[in-house]
Amino acid sequence: MTVHGDADRLRIETLLREQEERILKRWLDIAGAAAGGRADHGVLGGRMREIYQAMLRSLSEGDDSTDLRGLLAELSRIQAREGFTPSDTAVLVLSVKEAVYETIEASEETAALRGYIWFSKFVDDLALYTFETYVTAREKIITDQSEQLLELSTPVVKLWEGILAVPLVGTLDSARTQVVMEKLLQALVETGSEHAVIDITGVPAVDTQVAQHLLKTVAAARLMGAECVVSGIRPQIAHTIVTLGIEFGDIVTKSSLSDALAHALRQSGVQLTQGASKRVVVATERA
């Protein structure tokens, strides 16, 4: 910044300080009009005064604007909670420019007018900051919700005594597959189940990573003393697996969940006999 620029900047600062009450009142009027009847003027006024003063401190102290940013972030949060759009919040901050401009015009000082350009940029940054805060808060909500969804969308169900199943639905990414698999292995221990069916009928596609995770899960289950069957592999997925050159090795695969269940039942020594009366007779070999 040039010496000339510095002087202009100083003039604006002085003006903002001298005319504090007047500018604040105008700012509140303009912002209040823009918000319509939705804002509580008393509370909003108090908050705007705090921001204005933090702005003055930030201007005179140079770069340290932690206070100001904190207040703006708070404003952004409160506004969002009260149902204002991020644009409303940005407009609220931006409207301070109008109030300041009117004051400068009244003062008829060219130095202050030149400084206004600089001040305008400063306020633009602040408005953008409220927008960013809003977006960050939104992203956090989205991440939290997708985590909750992850928990919801991956149930481990018991099909039979000693047989668990995880019906996977939707697109599998690496993170989700990992969560599901950990959950399945934990459930094997907790229920003492020696068989698990991983059903991927509802999965439209798999990539190398997801396929690897499935394979690792089967291997890990074996180390723990349980066997997994993968069922519901669609033709496209079978195609992908072969094209990618993924070795399924000696992992048992079945085309449908019911075939997989029948296989697991056989393995655990349960015999199903369909009698004339369509009664299912269950006989367990092992005492």
Binding site: E182, L185, Q186, A220, M224, G225
Partner: peptide
């Protein structure tokens, strides 16, 4: 070998 924990099994793989 009995009772291998899930986290241990995943790590071994």
């Amino acid at each position: 070998v009995v009772g291998m924990r899930p986290a241990v099994a995943i790590t071994l793989v």
